[in-house]
Design a protein around this nucleic acid. Structure first.
Lengths: 362, 362
DNA sequence: CTCAAACTTTGAAAGGTTTAAAAAAGGTTA
DNA sequence: TAACCTTTTTTAAACCTTTCAAAGTTTGAG
């Protein structure tokens, strides 16, 4: 009742050696029916569960996958984690969750620890500015495969599962341009993050193709969170001429933009159109519902875990770089220029001039 | 470079026995300065990291905490997990994350596995209808403490960290009543979940105190998710007389209500007021911004992990039942009856009669 | 009926740590 | 300097599996 059952006890009960028990359990050798039955019966009646620790020690690897992410509290990541957990679970692997808060030091700590724990493999969404290669170089990568998820650190040549950020952003910008916008602004993520850069590149490509130029102050860097998105929006909306459309490189920042717009008494999409990236659930419920570039965190996590497990099972290919597709989800936050004359006049709830300036002065 | 450094190698390098190395590392015995220095130097130069597996096997416990939750994808849970991870991390414990999807079978599996893994303790948000006591009874609870989080299974007498659901719901209902509402409806969570029951009780207490009765069909059960909240709302909004206010026992269901309202061309809060529970981030961005009962998932997770760690360190108190406070966050989704005459008339965007009926028929 | 071949089963080591007990070293006193 | 007490260091077992090599058993052919 109190202490867990070990193979030794099974062996005693079944009157066989421990080795035989192991062979029955793992099918590592033929065992005559009679003994096999006895062992199975003993296992059933005593309720044996092998010690994962002893197994790990002996085999020099566990059934644990390390999942290192910036912050589970960021609504994009739970989907990724869940996708990974689901495929891990189906293969009887488990997930150790680690939040780095984007601090390379914490990331390095976790990597070292998971290695010492003989995690079977690592799924990593690298911290901004992390030097993953250095962190990994002190061990045997052959026995502990690593797959980068969502973004790669600079110079990463290993496996990775990401999303086609460039194309997604391109589609977003193109949609705005097609809708007649000519003064586009963009709020990018941290310049250290590969996905932020790719999205910016896609955005710029669409402008280039449309022969539009972009003033450098219309490219504002923020931190992929609501607060910094809000601040960046405040900066942008103060400019003259004001951009008529903003592409926020993720939805959290788009939320910040919405907040800023509201505070400045500007209407979306009548005064400023907005497109986000990620297509979080919240997009359906914002006011107005947010047009956004869909990417499936779940699929990304699942694909990454799938690839990682293949590597664990010994797959020896060249490193793979899997880029999932995105899809622009149209909602209500973009106004077509063709409709400009239909914009209803503003409601009188407009703030007093003094008040507005106060807000702008922020 | 390739294989991890073991104590044996440290011992060789420092010209001492393995036991001495262990004593230096753990401070389990006095070691003369000279040897101690040699050992420390060896550790430094070879870069030793103890094998958590070997330690776990020897000590019969690891530095892992099992965290079992229904689904990390539900936006309330990431905060809980993060709170737990933060305090675990500060105490050099790590978290193994397990999603049960509210399936007791999956929960039981995880519990058994984490036990076999010698997790130091378990943090569990029980699945609906789980019999945790049974799952736990087959092992030695003394060595593996368990803390229930967010809700307790029926008859649970162990440690728990929850929120004062009853009071939170009471405040929500009271707010609606004070605002002049008399036809209140409630969308509850699964009747198997303690927190759902408590919230319903709080709601009913407020009604009782105000000498209001509630028709049984104004109490609709849903599953704490958006979809079922939407369906419950559809049922409610079809009734005559229609409730003038709805209390949704969590925000996800409130989102569903918002969706239903929109589809039926009813306005919130002019036609129907709405209060949610959880105060998710999304409440700020919905249309209208959602009044909701705040509870801190982060604090709950942190408190639970704190208590669990105390138990792991040997605290022997009577079981604790910690209930955190809630706070009603007022936003725009509740209309005061005093303002009823100020409601602007509906805009002409109202659907045609035929269309409306089609929607109602759903 | 014997012997070899094929198949089963067992024994023991290994994996890396902790720790109780034994051994060794160092120090003190007579 | 011997005897004795402390303090320091080492030894070896234990934790629970897996697995290789060795020992044991069965089978079938001659």
């Amino acid at each position: 009742m109190s202490d867990p059952v070990t193979m030794r006890q099974i062996a005693e009960r079944a009157q066989v050696s421990i080795g035989t028990v192991s062979h029955v359990i793992n099918g590592t050798a033929r065992v005559r029916t009679k003994l096999r039955m006895r062992v199975q019966e003993a296992i059933r009646s005593l309720g044996f569960q092998p010690s994962a620790l002893a197994q790990g020690l002996r085999l020099n690897r566990t059934k644990m996958l390390g999942m290192i992410i910036p912050d589970i509290t960021n609504p994009f990541f739970p989907g990724v984690v869940r996708g990974a957990e689901d495929v891990a679970f189906r293969n009887s692997y488990r997930l150790v969750l680690c939040n780095t808060d984007n601090e390379p030091a914490k990331e390095a700590l976790y990597v070292a620890e998971l290695r010492s724990f003989r995690a079977a493999g690592l799924l990593i969404i690298p911290a901004a500015g992390s030097d993953l290669r250095a962190e990994l170089s002190s061990g045997t990568p052959a026995t502990q495969p690593v797959v980068c998820v969502d973004r790669c650190p600079e110079g990463w040549t290993g496996d990775a599962v990401v999303v086609d950020n460039e194309e997604g952003a391109y589609q977003a910008a193109k949609h705005l341009i097609r809708s007649g916008h000519r003064h586009l602004a963009v709020i990018t993520g941290p310049a250290l993050l590969a996905n932020a850069i790719e999205r910016l590149n896609g955005f710029k490509r669409a402008l280039r193709e449309a022969r539009l130029s972009i003033a450098s102050e219309f490219v504002q860097e923020a931190a992929f969170d609501t607060r910094s998105g809000y601040q960046a929006a405040k900066r942008l909306l103060r400019m003259l001429p004001r951009p008529t459309a903003i592409f926020a490189c993720n939805d959290l920042m788009a939320l910040g933009v919405l907040h800023a717009l509201h505070e400045l008494d500007l209407r979306c999409p009548e005064d400023v159109s907005l497109v986000g990236f990620d297509n979080l659930e919240v997009c359906e419920y914002t006011n107005p519902a947010l047009t956004s570039v869909y990417q499936s965190g779940y699929q990304m996590g699942a694909a990454a875990a799938g690839l990682l497990l293949e590597r664990i099972k010994g797959l020896q290919d060249a490193p793979r770089h899997i880029a999932l597709e995105t899809e622009l989800k149209l909602r209500k936050s973009v106004m077509s220029i063709a409709n400009f004359d239909k914009i209803p006049s503003k409601k009188p709830r407009r703030r007093s001039k003094a008040n507005r300036e106060a807000v702008l002065a922020d």
